[in-house]
Design a protein around this nucleic acid. Structure first.
Length: 574
DNA sequence: GCCGTTTTCGGCCCGACTGTTTTCAGTCG
């Protein structure tokens, strides 16, 4: 059982308990436990196998959660959960997903009207039965009817790259108002999370009412959900919710810090403020009633004796430990990247020729690129057999001869790891390449053990340099395949092989925790775009953000180095 | 339910907003 599955189970338990009106702190404990287990780098399964008492070393895991982990790993079941499920129909939990409906209202609706599902809730609203319940009125009924569609969409989180377009637009709109003095996005968008659930916009305005009016008239705003003196929520055309907060100038930094989060980061920060006899909230840092910081974010951190943290690090993982040791990493930046080692051309499923890709890379100022078209097994993309691959390499040789400037062009290939194991191209062909990526496109439904075995074999292959998209995980879709990453890390470290962070914004092969774990194993990371056209090369910054969230520095990432150095590192793997 | 160690019991963030209510509970972030 994976950590994510254990976390999901604990979340469900928390939902059911909350619905039953259990102690809210108990509910929160389960949610905290679920979160830390989801984030934990080591698998719970292996901890249970080695020594279950070590579970208690995990922050937020006590006797109760530890017992539940053991039960889940050993039997796949949880008695308490099954008992709860017998009492509460699971579909009822979905009522909690309707914005404005919390555990109390959901329980009342279930008890008074016998509502068991979203469909029944919607019908009851249409029939006007909901407004007859004490504590509910016509407005609540209308709000539920309006919001029930968002509950049905499960969880509306959009890719960071898509949120970015909206955020840039909305910021520009707000800054165009003459009454707006400052405007910034906060929240998970600012932290660079791979997906974004809503946007948090902070403004300092000479006239708050006018600023809110200005927001209400933005082209992307579909409806206003709530509007008070300092706070306003709107629904955008994409369905995304945007929350605006108008704050005084002297509180802007504190508000930016507070609303950027994460929640766990802020909890830690508050605790540290308390230890120093200070209080911190969205208005500032206070000693007693006296404000001592608030206008700028770095002043807020400084008041608590901490350095300013890049937003990508604010997840309460290692950042405080690093700050305490005076070793906050200097995170990698997009400008550090010197080359891109994964891209396709018209030879297979790319939309541009080698020449066009070289031109685009030249404009980005890259020192080198690798052309890595698919191997023959990827028939849908007209993958290359040895003859066509060698022909492409010959053409690259000629191109190299014609060009005196621009990036060095490396003869590469993205060679498939076959279903039955082994590489899709013969060793003598791979031996001629400057750069070999190995990746899985077929047989993704095999067992975890089988997939892992195939990847391990590729790692041991003398001519393979790196594993491309090592987990095949795509955001907003089910995981492509399951793989034992612990084993992959150990093998990659042993054989000096490289793992790719794929910069495609819809991919999350190695999340920040896994990426950081790979780094701790001493495995070089390469950030590649896997571009299928010239514009695809611009995705590099998404991969860099992912690496920043993992706390990676320039030194951790292979393609921040000159090619001569990269070659020396590749030689170790042979 | 978890945590701590000047607490093994008593905290656990708390302010803004809405709706229903006639003084406040529920929800959200």
């Amino acid at each position: 059982m994976t950590n994510a599955q254990i976390a999901d189970t604990l979340e469900l338990l928390a939902d059911l308990l909350e619905f039953q009106g259990a102690n809210p702190f108990r509910v929160r404990s389960y949610r905290n436990g679920a979160r830390t287990i989801r984030d934990h780098a080591e698998s719970i399964e292996s901890i249970v196998a080695a020594d279950p008492r070590r579970l208690l070393d995990i922050e937020g895991v006590g006797d109760s959660v530890a017992d539940k982990c053991v039960s889940l790993v050993q039997t796949g079941r949880l008695e308490q959960l099954e008992a709860l499920q017998a009492e509460v129909p699971e579909s009822v939990v979905k009522l909690l997903r309707v914005p404005g409906v919390g555990p109390k209202k959901a329980a009342t609706l279930h008890k008074e009207l016998g509502i068991r599902s979203l469909a029944e809730l919607e019908q009851a609203c249409r029939d006007g039965r909901v407004r007859s319940v004490r504590g509910f009125g016509a407005k609540t009924e209308e709000a539920i009817l309006r919001n029930v569609v968002f509950a049905e969409k499960a969880e509306l989180r959009i890719l960071w790259a898509d949120a970015d377009r909206v955020a840039v637009d909305m910021l520009a709109h707000m800054r165009s108002s003459p009454v707006v003095r400052r405007a910034e996005m906060a929240g998970s968008y600012r932290r660079g999370r791979d997906t974004v659930g809503d946007l948090d916009l902070l403004v300092v305005a000479a006239d708050r009412e006018a600023a809110m009016d200005h927001l209400a008239h933005a082209p992307r705003v579909r409806e206003t959900l709530a509007r008070g003196e300092t706070k306003m929520s709107v629904r955008l055309d994409s369905g995304l919710q945007l929350d605006l907060r108008a704050v005084p100038a002297e509180s802007f930094g504190a508000a930016l810090q507070y609303f950027t989060g994460s929640k766990a980061h802020n909890v830690e920060l508050r605790g540290r403020a308390k230890d120093r006899g200070l209080k911190i909230n969205e208005y500032g840092v206070f000693r007693g009633d006296e404000p001592i910081a608030g206008a700028e974010e770095n002043e807020v951190y400084a008041a608590i004796g901490l350095p300013w943290f890049p937003p990508e690090l604010r997840e309460a993982r290692r950042e405080f430990e690093w700050a305490d040791a005076g070793r906050l990493p200097k995170l990698i930046e997009p400008a550090d990247i010197r080359g891109d080692l994964h891209m396709h051309t018209t030879a297979t499923d790319g939309r541009a020729t080698v020449e066009q890709m070289v031109e685009a890379a030249s404009r980005l100022g890259y020192e080198y690129i690798a052309v890595t078209d698919h191997s023959r097994r990827v028939t849908m993309a007209r993958g290359l057999d040895p003859a066509r691959l060698r022909a492409q390499w010959k053409a690259i040789d000629r191109l190299r001869g014609r060009r005196s400037d621009g990036p060095a062009i490396l003869k590469g290939v993205e060679c498939d790891i076959l279903e039955k194991g082994g590489m899709d191209l013969p060793d003598d062909v791979l031996a001629e390449a400057d750069w070999v990526l190995a990746s899985i496109h077929y047989g993704q439904r095999q067992s975890r053990a089988q997939i892992t075995e195939r990847v391990l074999e590729a790692i041991e292959h003398p001519h393979v340099n790196a594993i491309a998209h090592p987990t095949g995980r795509l955001l907003q879709r089910r995981e492509a395949y399951e793989i034992d990453l612990d084993a992959v890390f150990q093998a990659a470290a042993r054989h000096s092989k490289i793992l790719e962070v794929n910069a495609n914004p819809a991919r999350l092969d190695l999340d920040d925790i896994q990426c950081a774990a790979a780094c701790r194993h001493g495995i070089p990371i390469v950030i590649n775009t896997d571009a299928h056209g010239p514009e695809g090369l611009d995705d590099m910054r998404y991969g860099v953000t992912q690496a920043r969230r993992a706390g990676l520095t320039r030194d951790d990432v292979l393609n921040t180095r000159p090619w001569k150095q990269v070659e020396r590192i590749l030689a170790r793997g042979h």
